[in-house]
Amino acid sequence: MLSEIQLDALAEIFNVGAGRAASSISEIIHDEVKLSVPSIEFKTSAEISPEALSLNHGRFGTVRQDFSGSFDAVAMLLFSEDNALEIVRDMMGSQMSLDDLAEFEQEAMCELGNIILNACLSAMADMLSISLDSSLPDYKIASCDDILHAIAHNAGQDYILVLNIVLTSAKRQTEGQLILLLSSASLTNLIQHIDGLVSGI
């Protein structure tokens, strides 16, 4: 779907985004954070399965934001529910009880999603010289089936960019997924902008 050089450009865009997000998260949890994107893959909606998304059959904390502008995309950040709570504990202070944490879970996870998704999409906008606006983040606890259903029924968005992300701090390493759902027209538009970046070199 994408050439090696196009994927390299996309990986570098997300590398810059992840660096910005890690810097912000580091300030929140008062600890050094590494946010890496070890793999990027394009899939079609027909290819989506729990295995393709590296999802087990547990429950997940999902943050969704819709982006619009030079191209449109639905962005989703997924962490297993246990990992999501641990991240919230790091963000809110480890002295909090689990009961108290649950009260802040929605707000803290929306903030985390907002930071990571906007850092990545703003890096994309800056590097491709385009403009993207975002909706407010929406946090839900969802099962693997709920996530697959949401992807399959996102009308017209047949292409899925799957990024495995690893959030590492001194206390723990947390793996999650960042998913971008794109229509055929949006994918074509994104590829044109990437080609513009590469051909301008």
Partner: peptide, 8 residues
């Protein structure tokens, strides 16, 4: 020259 802009 890096995207890893953390203070450390």
């Amino acid at each position: 020259f890096s995207a890893n802009i953390q203070e450390t």
